[in-house]
């Protein structure tokens, strides 16, 4: 169990770094889907089966395919526009990211009472999850469904609108 956690988190971090730093966009999306899968594995490790499965279903099944489609439709496959001044940009990026990281790690370390929190061996059954989703969390559920329909209609309108004007 312990080895599994460290192995998966190493894979997670390495593929995340690759996902953002590779030049060929196809490999980027591939590494992004490895990130999604390994975070789903972490969810399974944390005994949140339902969320792990939903993560795989939505992220790897749909989001990765969408990203691939987007990469296919836009021509610049290998982003070559690294002009000379690029180095400075990277250093800015690294600086801000590490600043944020330092702040987060600082906040984690300052929390003293985290250590004795032990994992409760309670496994939420999917049935109770479903019940709770439709009773206690009905409002977020309805808002999420509203948002999904809005996003679907928005996506289509953006794609379609272009066709009307150009034809």
């Amino acid at each position: 169990m312990i080895a599994a956690f460290y192995l998966i988190s190493v894979v997670l971090i390495v593929s995340a770094v690759l996902a953002v730093s590779l030049r060929n966009l196809i490999y980027c999306t591939l590494c992004a889907s490895v990130v999604f899968i390994s975070s789903a594995a972490l969810f399974f490790l944390l005994k949140a089966d339902f969320i792990g499965v939903v993560q795989i279903l939505i992220y790897v099944g749909a989001v990765a395919t969408l990203l691939l489609f987007a990469v296919m439709l836009t021509k610049n496959l290998v982003s070559r526009q690294y002009y000379v001044g690029q180095k400075r940009k990277w250093s800015y990026g690294i600086f801000t990211a590490s600043a944020v990281l330092w702040v987060l790690i600082g906040s984690i370390r300052s929390q003293t009472n985290l250590a004795e929190l032990v994992t409760a061996d309670h496994q939420l059954s999917v049935v109770s999850l479903g019940k709770e989703m439709l009773t206690a969390f009905l409002l977020p559920f309805e808002v999420a469904s509203l948002l999904l329909t809005a996003a679907m209609i928005g996506g289509i309108v953006i794609a379609l609108e272009e066709k009307k004007k150009s034809s």
Partner: peptide, 23 residues
């Protein structure tokens, strides 16, 4: 595994994502 390890991993992940989005 103590909770802080999980938080460290997700913090690292967050900063990598931020780095990607910025640069």
């Amino acid at each position: 595994i103590p909770l802080s390890h999980y938080l460290a991993v997700s913090a690292a992940l967050f900063s990598i994502g931020l780095f990607g989005a910025l640069t």
